[in-house]
Amino acid sequence: MTFIWAFIVAGIFCVIGQIILDNTKLTPGHITSIFTVLGAILAFFGLYDKLIELAGGGASTIISNFGYLLYDGAWEGYQASGFLGIFTGMFTKGGAAVVGAVVFAAFFTLFFDPKD
């Protein structure tokens, strides 16, 4: 059942993105930023947890998951060590995606040249 929900939830996110992309002048950069903020907002209302419970990988592969992870890390940081925890905890969960993207991109850039 999770598989079906994964398909539907990820699909719906992409459809919303595509509709915005087609009908407004917003660029892909705008769309990904909007969806990241949306993820943080959904996390704020406690909805993103439920979405992941329902759709698993369908929810955790969308860029909104990054906003959710940042928010969740910061909130857990606050609970563990107060105001400073917001700063130190922000990247405890979302950091993996950024570090991964940096390390892999730098690594592949060593060995590949741009193709036209």
Binding site: A10, F13, C14, V15, G17, Q18, L21, P28, G29, I31, T32, F35, T61, I62, I63, S64, N65, F66, A97, G100, A101, V102, F104, A105, A106, F108, T109, F112, D113, P114
Partner: peptide, 22 residues
């Protein structure tokens, strides 16, 4: 948007700007 909104879009943007400005 099918590949833009999943994490693939994020990785693609980092990798392509890294390659382009290498």
């Amino acid at each position: 948007a099918g590949l833009l909104l999943p994490t693939t879009g994020f990785a693609h943007s980092v990798q392509s700007s890294a390659l382009d400005y290498k």
